[in-house]
Write a protein that binds this DNA or RNA. Structure first.
Length: 606
RNA sequence: GGUUCGCUAGCUCAACUGGAUAGAGCAACUGCCUUCUAAGCAGUAGGUUCCAGGUUCGAGUCCUGGGCGAAUCACCA
């Protein structure tokens, strides 16, 4: 379709030259889709050019429209409303276009250019199971990796696992105290087990704070409540134990390391089950226990380049006030590193492992400041990849009761949610009774596809930066603008192509290329199909799976109208019947490709 | 307090990066299954796009000021 649009634009430029004697650059001329209420497919807006044409908007439109119908054979007719010139395209152009799209199964796929991009997502802590917020992160990252690959990138998916630190020690301490050597079972995955002890730690910690506060208040009647609370929080014995454990861990205490490895191993097994179930994977895993000491040589490098500076106490800082930010600590006075130090080192390590032009971090929006700083620092250190650092920031998933908090156990657990949705899929499906001949395995697989389809689409259709509200009381829809609707349309069309093949109907381009006329809805469906390449491209440029979701829904909706009004196998005209089947088949293919880019499967039957 | 982000129908979200009468889904109401899958289709109703100015042929979109909400500005990660 691009050639046709380009050709029309060229002719518009020509019209300006011949009719108005003005030179307008082709790049300045834009066509936009015609609004549904008006006749036509593409619209040219005349307002910006009136100072050149020195004519009224309607007149300008008429003159250009007249010129185009005479000189551009793809234009069938035109109409001018106010200053908008609406162009209708010849039916034969649409028919040929369908043929072209149908013959190219990679229609719209970006040419492989080999530019490297790394996408980091998921990045879980090993002290708690995955919840709904993680799912938004994971689905975004995974979908984005597919979208960029389809746009011709060489993509590396990585997971940076946060496997050390005080929070990990908290669940370990609680396990030591209350665990009684409990082990994961079929009913209790390893990540769930660890998560339970993280919650147990918090419970005990709160209890101790309460006790200490009461005790201190008695002992120091005059003291401010807040001060006492702060002291209690710091002095609670169980927290001291966790801190002590972290010191031992850093000193490589064998007993602690054994416990750490054992518990983390359980968690990884638990995570793998979930990753596997939701159909995502990674090309490489990084562990923070390997990377947390990195970055110190970068601090040295920065000092010698005088990019960083040392304060009297020996701590190292960078001054970002020119960039409108503050001074930022990079190394503590005792020589230990902070969060940003690690991330600097990790950025370099990643680039050594995979020399990428851009590096995408799928991380929640509460870390926007952190990544802004990281990018600036790496730039100051002269890293050429710094410009390619991109923080794909997304909003939190909130519950009606507020924020999800793992340590308080107020989260929507990922596994539970998926199980629950599979149940819904199961009961809906059996109510409808369309797959009674399925084997048990086939049926289970379908429920899973539908449950994940609904969930992934639900999380991906919303623009990432918006926070979203999830109400567990109202289950995720299977109707309307949903993943299931798209899957349903795919399955519906699959039935048509199955029947066509059984009946031995040819629906290749040859079978309908003689057709001269098509219906408006058919034209609209082909128009939608022709948008796939630009939508794919746009999704890649904006790192935006929601673009694909919105596109697929529009396509399916347009097709559904066609499907409802226009019987296919009842069609008398043979060429027309073949055309309708080809059109349907192409819609199914495009829906399938779009869903695939969102990480969603397209069942043949449902 | 500074910075960033968000605010569109009762609810959840769109709006092709400045275009025409702001669109979908859910919820409500009306029709449509003896013909290719009704997890669907068609329709009714629902709006001061947070407010006030400005820029221009044209503003939900850009600028200024204000309101509400969130995040962040840690020697936590």
């Amino acid at each position: 379709m691009k050639q046709i649009i380009d050709s029309i634009i060229e002719k518009i430029a020509e019209a300006f030259q011949k009719e108005f004697s003005v030179e307008i650059k082709k790049e300045e001329i834009k066509l936009q889709p015609t609004k549904k209420e008006f006749e036509g497919s593409y619209t040219f807006v005349t307002f910006p050019y009136l100072r050149h044409t020195k004519k009224m908007p309607e007149q300008t439109g008429e003159i250009i429209g007249e010129y185009l119908t005479k000189n551009e054979k793809s234009i069938a007719s035109y109409n001018v409303v106010k200053g908008f010139l609406n162009l209708s395209i010849e039916h034969s152009v649409w028919i040929n276009l369908l043929g072209e799209i149908a013959q190219n199964e990679n229609y719209g796929k970006g040419e492989y250019h080999g530019k490297k991009v790394m996408i980091e997502y998921s990045s879980p802590n090993t002290n708690k199971p995955l919840h709904l917020g993680h799912l938004r992160n994971i689905f975004l990252g995974y979908s984005l990796s597919l979208i960029l690959k389809e746009n011709g990138y060489d993509v590396m998916k990585v997971n940076l696992i946060n496997d050390r630190g005080i929070h990990i020690c908290k669940s370990m301490v609680a396990y030591q105290k209350f665990g009684n050597d409990e082990e994961p079972t079929a009913d209790l995955k390893g990540d769930k087990l660890a998560g339970n002890y993280y919650v147990a730690f918090d419970k005990e910690y709160k209890k101790q704070i309460q006790e200490l506060t009461e005790k201190f208040t008695k002992e120091n009647p005059g003291k401010k409540e807040e001060e006492i609370k702060t002291i209690a929080e710091n002095e609670a014995p169980i927290l001291q134990e966790a801190k002590e454990m972290l010191r031992k861990w850093e000193a490589k205490d064998p007993e602690i390391l054994t416990l750490w490895e054992k518990m983390n191993g359980w968690v990884y097994e638990g995570f793998d089950i979930t990753y596997n179930k939701i159909g995502v994977d990674f090309d490489k895993q990084y562990y923070e226990s390997d990377t947390y000491l990195l970055g110190k040589d970068l601090v040295e490098e920065g000092l010698s380049k005088k990019t960083f500076f040392k304060k009297e106490d020996g701590s190292v800082w960078v001054d970002l006030s020119e960039e409108g930010l503050d001074e930022k600590l990079l190394l503590r006075a005792d020589g230990t590193s902070v969060y940003i130090t690690q991330d600097m080192g990790t950025a370099d390590r990643k680039h050594q492992d995979f020399p990428m032009e851009s590096s995408v971090y799928v991380v929640g929006n509460e870390q926007e400041y952190h990544f802004k700083v990281l990018k600036l620092i790496m730039k100051k250190l002269g890293r050429d990849y710094a410009d390619g650092i991109y923080h794909l920031s997304y909003g939190m998933v909130d519950l009606p009761s507020g924020k999800m908090k793992s340590r308080e156990g107020t989260v929507v657990d990922a596994d539970d949610l998926i199980d629950q949705m599979e149940e819904t899929a199961k009961s809906r499906t059996s109510e409808l009774g369309k797959i009674d001949d399925f084997s048990k395995e086939e049926a289970e697989k379908l429920y899973q596809s539908l449950a994940l389809g609904a969930l992934k689409y639900y999380l991906l259709k919303v623009e990432p930066r918006k926070r979203m509200l999830f109400n567990p009381e109202e289950s995720i829809d299977f109707q309307g603008d949903t993943g299931v609707y798209l899957q349903y349309n795919h399955a519906k069309i699959s039935a048509i192509t199955r029947k066509a093949k059984e009946d031995g109907i040819d629906f290749s381009f040859d079978s309908y290329k003689e057709l001269t006329s098509i219906e408006p809805l058919e034209e609209e469906v082909i128009y939608q199909l022709s948008l796939f390449p630009e939508k794919l491209c746009e999704a890649g440029e904006n790192y935006s799976p929601s673009t694909i979701a919105g596109y697929a829904y529009e396509l399916a909706k347009t097709y559904s109208r066609f499907y409802a009004e226009s019987p296919i196998f009842g069609e008398e005209n043979k060429a027309k019947k073949s055309f309708k089947i080809a059109l349907s088949n192409q819609v199914a293919n495009t829906i399938k490709r779009s869903l695939h880019l969102l990480g969603i499967e397209s069942p043949e039957r449902m």
